[in-house]
Nucleic acid binder design. Structure first.
Lengths: 337, 337
DNA sequence: TCCATCGCTGAGCAAATGATCGGAGCCACG
DNA sequence: CGTGGCTCCGATCATTTGCTCAGCGATGGA
């Protein structure tokens, strides 16, 4: 395979790589054996890896898509990405993603952690699978108001309550609607200590668990009655592709300021940016454009997504030139031991 | 392949291995990511390697037999083994092995080195290929007397002279026959300062370049007139399978003391043992039994051999139980980076 | 129920590794 | 033939890694 190497080089690289990787010698021993300096051996090993003389393969279970995860991390500068296996049925797809998210939280959360939580159908599935082995003394706090017109399990307060229940932690509810009827009303609401306190706590969270919403007529925001069909259409016209916590962005990831945003009771994009680990949970039901937009906004640190969306998002990212080059070019494996 | 792992374990191992080997994260970063201690990550990586989740393969050129070399090293506690590709023609086979030996010497020898040299057809081919890029100020010294009845290029003195010529070093000849006619004669010879000095120098060599001889009627010792057909037959009857420098051993590697040995003018097995690196060069023309015997004697540090003999020797070693267990069992790859 | 044993865990340390940097040799060009 | 730029080399240092060891909790037997 590595045909551009001279025969001698090829032989030397193979010999040294074999001695190192198969026989388990140290670089120093090999250096002595071949009458080379230790750094030279290290460079040769690097070259052997790079040129394909050393072939490191991970026998991953077929249901894992580690390569997709790596591409997502690299393309969007995520600290982590988890791709869950494809399911045909939307509901079991959502469950698969939620299971991954729950597992992630179980690993990530420790005593004293504060977790800001959004609404959403995907997010709403997470509590069912969140079953830490031992008690975690952490706090779940609503990062967004509620809405009476959807099922309880997709409201942030309810999600917080169940998460807390399953790990022995506490839940702090936000006693406010997601959208109020006027700017004045929102300002009055924010003056209420109960509301202000909860939002302050959410803003200081170390972890946020959020869903990503779309902008079609059947999106959660519309179904929950938070936004009218007219409003969502106006957002679409303004270029909106998706939202986190009611904050809409366009395809390039830029925040869209629309009239409705001043009636929103939730953390802002800036609040989210200050949170250490923002975990976004998305399954097939959301449009890839929405995911791409939010990822480009740069607020998400950890993406938990299904295989189908992962592929499509990466595809879209490659097609449309990103506003600020975040090259998706594969860089050669950095390490080889 | 790794089917004895539980599904969760398998997934975790694959994830961690991917992060480490493909993405190039450090163990510490991975530990933080998965909420594990660093040593734990290191153990998991070890397990991943061991269980086959991580598969490290060396794309060696087809003419190299690195696996055979490793088996030889392990089975006979050699510090190095070089297997040269098979040739059908005995002469080109000898040349291939000699080329490897010459390359080895070029790497191994430095200014000030003293090399003790034996006779033999295989050894005799080495000088032709010994062409160091720069001058090496070393000394080649005969470790054995000569014999007038064979071609000059297989006599130690001549081999030394040519090796020295090709690297700009010095040669010290042994002015004595390999075998003399009586014990008394030998003792008288060893009293000669010219002879004694050369043998003392050879005994202090840091490297020895030796051939391995057989015990059939056509072996070098017989052809050169050093031993009669009767003598070699007596040696065979005593269990001898091969020799280095006229010192014969049986299949178990034990030295055979026969009448002729007191008429030998050469380094002894004990002298060889004291030499840091004893390099044995053998090609197809020698019997594998001879090689096996000599290897079991434990004097050889580096074996340079053709593929056919390498396989046969390993096969024989597995069949017959060695006197002192030198297990040929493959131990799992020690390293994985 | 108590105690011995086993295996697992993570702190700490020594070895091994990867990376930087000045210097030497080499080539192309002036 | 001199010179500038280039690459390659190995001394050296910071980081990473492998490993040991004492302590802990689980397990099982008395």
């Amino acid at each position: 395979m590595p045909e551009d190497l001279r025969q001698d080089d090829y032989e030397l690289l193979a010999r040294i790589a074999h001695r190192y990787y198969v026989d388990g010698r140290t670089q120093e021993e090999i250096a002595a054996e071949f009458a080379l300096s230790r750094p030279k051996v290290q460079r040769l090993l690097e070259r052997a890896r790079w040129s394909g003389v050393v072939d490191i393969r991970i026998q991953a279970p077929p249901w894992l898509h580690l390569d997709l995860e790596t591409q997502l991390r690299d393309a969007f500068r995520l600290s982590d990405a988890i791709v869950s296996p494809s399911r045909t049925d939307p509901q079991s797809q959502r469950e698969a993603v939620a299971r991954s998210a729950a597992g992630y939280l179980e690993r990530r959360l420790h005593d004293g952690a504060v977790v800001a939580v959004s609404h959403g159908r995907d997010t709403g599935e997470v509590p069912r699978f969140f079953r830490p082995e031992r008690r975690i003394d952490c706090t779940f706090v609503s990062a967004m108001g509620g809405s009476p017109r959807v099922d309880a399990p997709t409201n942030p307060n309810e999600i917080c309550r169940t998460l807390a229940e399953h790990c022995g932690g506490r839940a702090e509810s936000l006693y406010a609607p997601a959208y109020v009827e006027s700017v004045e009303m929102r300002d009055r609401l924010l003056e209420q200590e109960a509301v202000a306190h909860t939002l302050r706590l959410a803003a200081r969270a170390s972890v946020a668990l959020v869903g990503i919403g779309g902008t079609d007529d059947g999106c959660t925001m519309v179904r929950s009655g938070c936004l009218s069909l007219e409003e969502i259409a106006r957002l679409r016209a303004a270029g909106a592709v998706g939202d986190v916590l009611g904050n809409y962005v366009d395809a390039g990831g830029t925040l869209i300021s629309a009239p409705h945003s001043s009636r929103l009771v939730a953390l802002s994009i800036e609040d989210l940016r200050r949170i250490d680990t923002v975990v976004a949970v998305v399954s097939e039901t959301e449009k890839p454009q929405a995911i791409l937009g939010i990822l480009r906004a740069g607020v998400v640190d950890v993406l938990i997504v299904d295989e189908g969306n992962a592929r499509t998002v990466l595809e879209l990212a490659r097609e449309s030139v990103p506003p600020r080059a975040a090259g998706a070019a594969a860089h050669p494996a950095a390490r080889g031991r």
